[in-house]
Computed example of a mutant assay.
Amino acid sequence: MEDALIDIIKSSGEKVRFSTDQLQNSLRQSGADDQLVEQIVGQVREELYDGITSKEIYNRAFALLKNKKSIFAAKYKVKKAIYELGPTGFPFEKLVAAILEYSGYKTLVGKHMHGVCVTHEIDVYAQKNDNVYLLECKFHGEEGRNCNVKVPLYINSRFQDVKQQLEKDKNIVNLLVNGGVVTNTRFTEDAIKYSKCMGLYLLSWDYPKDNGLKDRIYRLGLYPITVSQLLTNREKQFLLSRDVVLCRQLIKDHFFLDHLGVSETRKQKIMKEISQLCDHGKQ
């Protein structure tokens, strides 16, 4: 399908050419089959106009998808659902830790570690075998706020302080200690260039390519609780306040729905939705 020659406005304010491929790919990740993808893309293309925002395109595609199958819409809204983890960054830190745990890492959130100069609170401490990652999580509650080079510059200075202190400890002589930054938005080119030069690990919505946050969430079925189409905002905030960040956690901790006074009939519907979301395969 040939792209319409339409310029759209991204959340950052940048003007780019509309891409059919990008819309198709995001719809397929939701589990929609080719026929439904082409149907939605066709309807969205008919409503395009120069200067339309990426948010308007998303909202239209989301509404069409939800009208066809709610579970597809839930998977489609992952990026928006992560923004809804706010206003604090703590649930995002828990999400990052959970994703790393499902990749074989042992994690701690909010670990205090001594540096040569001062003590630092590490957002996520992750270890697998001899590899240790000290990660700072930069959460943004709205689109368009990317991480510029100042972020890894600052994080690297903290990391070097802790690393120098760790190197004095004879018990960790065999550990390979890495610093890093994780964000729910994107890194600027300078931020990536500096981090590569300094050896900092980076993880963002779409970086590294094919292994960013979105890829890991879809691949592992680690959806944040905020993707649910059946839970109310109040219920989601209650669950987040009880450290239930992932849909997978609600399967184990479904008694929280009883605390919320959810009826048995509605509870069954919610748990069915959550179970479908946690299925690795496409619905």
Rank of each mutant, 00 (worst) to 15 (best):
K150S: 12
Q165I: 13
V162E: 05
R186N: 08
V181E: 09
T185C: 04
G180R: 01
L166S: 15
N178P: 05
Q164M: 14
Q165Y: 14
N178R: 04
K163T: 05
P152T: 09
Q160R: 14
G179A: 08
N174Y: 01
G180W: 00
L153C: 12
R186Q: 10
S157Y: 07
Q164V: 10
V181R: 04
L176I: 15
T185E: 04
V181I: 13
S157Q: 11
R158M: 05
K150C: 06
I172H: 11
G180K: 00
K163M: 07
T185K: 04
V182Y: 01
N174Q: 09
F159R: 04
Q160M: 14
I172S: 11
I172N: 10
V182T: 08
S157G: 01
G179L: 00
R186M: 07
K163E: 04
F159A: 02
V181F: 10
F159M: 02
Q160H: 13
V181A: 09
G179C: 08
T183K: 04
V177L: 13
V182H: 06
S157K: 12
D169W: 14
L176D: 15
L166A: 13
G179P: 00
L153K: 13
L176Q: 14
Y154R: 13
D161M: 11
G179Y: 00
N156V: 06
V162F: 06
E167W: 12
V182A: 02
D161A: 09
G179H: 02
